[in-house]
């Protein structure tokens, strides 16, 4: 019971922080102001292994306000895990996440919550208007967002915006790791059949501290997108994904073997064995992919017998 009134909080705000000591006080002040009319709430500040005294700054704030909780992690795990730690500790029926760099404006939180409650969504994602980032960050971000939309079919235009509101039962079935938090709306749709929408939120210039993101993350984002595609489409039928690849390999094998098999080979026979090897390499790939797919099915089957699949969200009407 963290709220001032003694009631259990209905709203939990989760903020992952890494070396943001200069932003803590203004961030908490802004959140307090934004949540004045939101009933009992709690603020979970997750210190993700900061080395600049962020935890000390939070500890001071917790002494004067029992709605504020410090969760300090053993090392720097990354934003997804820090968010997960906050989600695990949250008790409110609605959970809001935002960045700790003050580039998200906490004043947008009430509107997100209102949309979530009134329009019966499971997740409301903010998309940043008037972005304060330099062009070299905005362009890759726009491309990544377009690819995510194309791959997943989830119409979210800003996957990089952490300011989001969720129903807690949605989060209970999701487990964030690596950099999965960026694609949380898409994962929520794929895994739990969540109802997701988006709304514009403000984006402010950085008040203090340094950005932890840059162009060097681009290859990682591309790899994450491949993962997302695999999870989104083939989570329950991995063999189908690998079978598609195997089919392509078989076609390549047949095409590369066509001259040797059907036309009696090339006139120069010195290296004809080499060409003859080509279709077998492709067929070996096809076999390998099928075997991998089968192995994935076996692993999935064992997994499902040990623990049922994460259930879809079900609404009880009436």
């Amino acid at each position: 019971m963290n709220s001032v009134s003694g009631e259990p909080p209905r709203l939990s705000v989760v903020v992952p922080l890494f070396n943001e000591v200069g932003n803590i006080v203004p961030l908490v002040d802004a959140i307090r102001s934004a949540l004045v009319d939101q009933g009992p709430w709690e603020l979970l500040l997750v210190d993700d292994g900061s080395t600049d005294g962020t935890a000390d700054a939070i500890r001071e704030l917790t002494a004067g306000d029992h709605r504020i909780t410090l969760i300090r992690l053993g090392r720097n795990y990354g934003q997804a895990t820090a968010l997960q730690a906050g989600f695990d500790a949250a008790v409110g029926s609605i959970v809001v996440s935002l960045d700790g760099d003050l580039q998200n404006d906490p004043a947008d939180i009430p509107a997100l919550i209102h949309t979530l409650r009134e329009q019966d969504y499971d997740l409301v994602a903010g998309y940043r208007v008037g972005r304060q980032d330099p062009t070299h960050r905005r362009i890759p971000s726009a491309i990544a967002n377009a690819i995510v939309r194309m791959l997943t079919g989830v119409r979210i235009r800003d996957t990089g915006c952490t300011l989001r509101a969720y129903r807690r039962e949605l989060l209970q079935g999701l487990h964030l790791y690596s950099d999965l938090h960026r694609f949380l709306p898409a994962v929520a749709v794929a895994v739990r059949g969540a109802r997701v929408t988006e709304m514009p939120v403000r984006h402010l210039p950085r008040f203090s501290g340094e950005s932890k993101y840059g162009l060097r993350r681009t290859p990682k984002v591309i790899i994450d997108l491949i993962v997302l595609r695999a999870i989104h489409s083939f989570r329950e039928r991995p063999l189908a994904m690998f079978a598609q690849g195997a089919l392509l390999a078989i076609i390549c094998g047949l095409l590369s073997g066509y001259p040797e098999i059907f036309t009696g080979g090339f006139p120069d026979s010195r290296f004809s064995l080499i060409l003859l090897a080509l279709p077998f390499i492709w067929l070996e790939l096809a076999g390998f992919l099928i075997l991998l797919g089968l192995m994935a099915e076996v692993a999935l089957s064992w997994q499902r017998s040990a623990r049922p699949s994460t259930p879809l969200l079900v609404r009880r009407r009436g």
Binding site: N2, T62, R72, T81, Q84
Partner: peptide, 24 residues
């Protein structure tokens, strides 16, 4: 990709962080 799918499937069973301090 197989590895990623296994990690995804195993994620609910593993707590991958350690909380060293909780205040409030």
């Amino acid at each position: 990709i197989i590895g990623e799918m296994m990690v995804f499937l195993q994620a609910p069973a593993r707590t991958r962080y350690r909380v060293v301090e909780r205040v409030n």
